[in-house]
Simulated assay, not measured.
Amino acid sequence: MKKTKFLISTAVLGIATLVAIAADHIDAPAVQGGTSDITDFYAFEGEDDSNIAFVANVQGLLGAGSDTQNAAFDENVLIEFNIDTNDDKVEDLVIQATARDGKMYFFGPVAPSQTGLNSTIASTTTNQASVDISAYGASAIIENANGMKFFAGPRDDPFFMDFAQYGQIIAGNASSFNSPGTDTFAGTNVMSIVIEVPKSMIGGSGTINTWVESKRKQ
C-alpha cells in the first residue's frame, strides 16, 4: 500500500458540544492567499439531531463570477477533521478529505495511524466515500454513504464581520458594533467541504473537542 505523508500548514481549533465556530480569513502568514488557507470551521448539530455536521471552508474572499468559477480544490492539500473524544487534546478519530479529478474523496471517521503534524491517508478504512465537486452556480451535489452525507464545492461565505466598525472599536472610536452592521464578506465565496456524521460514529452523546487542519503533500 502506498502511503502519502502530509505536513501541517495551518490549523483552526474549535471545541464543540453542539456548535463551534472559528474564523481565520487570510491572516495566517504561512498560507495567506493560498489554496490551503482555512477561513472558517463550523461544527453543529444537524437537522437530524442524532447527527453532527462539520464544515471546513478554504480559499476565502473569492469574488463572484470568474474568481469562483476558476477556483478549485488543491489536489496536494489534505483537509483533516480531528475529533478528540476523551478530552486529552489529541485526535482519537479523523475524517480526511482530498480532491482528485473533480471529486472529493473522504476517509473516516477512523483512528489515525499517527497523531500530530504528519498524516497518512487512511485508505484501508471501510468508511470511504466520494462526491462530485459541485460547480459554481450549479445545484449542490450531495452524496450519501455509510450513514453520512458529503458535499464539496463553492459556497457564499457565511461568516459575518463588520471590519470597518471593528477597526473603529479597536481604535477607541466606538464602543459597540452597529446593528446589523455591514457584512464585509458580502458577495464573496469560499470553497466548502461539508460532512454530516451520526453521533454514534464519533463518541455518541458525550462532549468532543474538534478542530480542522490543512496539510500539504510533501
Rank of each mutant, 00 (worst) to 15 (best):
Ile83Gln: 02
Asn86Trp: 11
Gln96Gly: 04
Met104Thr: 03
Ser113Asp: 15
Thr85His: 03
Leu117Glu: 09
Leu93Arg: 02
Ile83Val: 14
Pro109Glu: 04
Gly116Trp: 07
Val110Pro: 01
Leu117Met: 13
Gly116Ser: 09
Pro109Lys: 03
Lys103Glu: 07
Gly102Ala: 14
Asp101Ile: 06
Thr115Asp: 09
Gln96Ser: 07
Thr85Asn: 07
Tyr105His: 14
Thr115Ile: 12
Gly102Met: 14
Asn118Tyr: 11
Asn82Met: 12
Tyr105Met: 10
Ala97Val: 09
Lys103Met: 08
Val110Lys: 05
Asp87Glu: 13
Gly108Asp: 05
Phe107Trp: 09
Lys89Ile: 12
Asp92Gln: 12
Arg100His: 08
Asn86Leu: 13
Asp84Ala: 11
Asp92Phe: 11
Thr115Glu: 11
Asn82Trp: 03
Ile95Met: 11
Tyr105Gln: 10
Asp88Trp: 09
Pro112Met: 09
Met104Cys: 06
Asp88Glu: 12
Gly108Asn: 06
Asp88Ala: 10
Gln114His: 08
Arg100Ala: 07
Val110Gly: 03
Val94Leu: 02
Val110Cys: 00
Ser119Phe: 05
Gln96Asp: 06
Leu117Thr: 15
Thr85Phe: 01
Phe106Gly: 01
Lys89His: 10
Asp84Gly: 10
Ala99Ile: 03
Asp87Val: 00
Asn118Met: 13
Ala99Asp: 00
Leu93Ser: 04
Ala111Tyr: 05
Val94Thr: 13
Gly116Ile: 06
Val90Phe: 08
Phe107Glu: 01
Gly102Trp: 09
Ala97Asp: 04
Asn118Gly: 06
Asp92Leu: 10
Phe107Gly: 02
Ala111Pro: 13
Ala111Gln: 14
Gly116Lys: 06
Glu91Asp: 11
Ala111Met: 10
Thr120Glu: 15
Ala99Gly: 04
Gln96Met: 11
Ala99Tyr: 02
Asn118Arg: 15
Lys89Glu: 13
Ala97Gly: 09
Gln114Leu: 14
Lys89Pro: 00
Ser113Arg: 07
Asn86Tyr: 11
Gln96Glu: 15
Glu91Thr: 05
Arg100Cys: 02
Arg100Met: 03
Tyr105Arg: 09
Met104Ala: 06
Val110Asn: 06
Ile95Gly: 02
Ser113Pro: 00
Arg100Asn: 09
Ala97Phe: 02
Val110Phe: 07
Asp84Pro: 03
Asp92Ala: 10
Leu93Asp: 03
Asn118Leu: 15
Asp92Asn: 14
Asp88Leu: 11
Thr120Ile: 13
Gly108Gln: 04
Asp101Phe: 08
Phe107Tyr: 14
Phe106Thr: 03
Asp87Ser: 13
Pro109Val: 01
Thr120Gly: 08
Tyr105Ala: 05
Arg100Val: 03
Ile95Trp: 02
Ile95Arg: 01
Thr85Cys: 07
Val94Pro: 01
Phe106Asp: 00
Ala99Arg: 01
Asp88Ile: 12
Val90Met: 10
Ser113Ala: 15
Arg100Asp: 04
Thr120Cys: 00
Asn86Lys: 13
Ser113Gln: 15
Pro109Trp: 04
Ala111Ile: 11
Ile95Phe: 05
Gly116Thr: 05
Pro112Tyr: 06
Met104Phe: 07
Met104Gly: 03
Leu117Cys: 00
Val90Asn: 14
Gln96Cys: 08
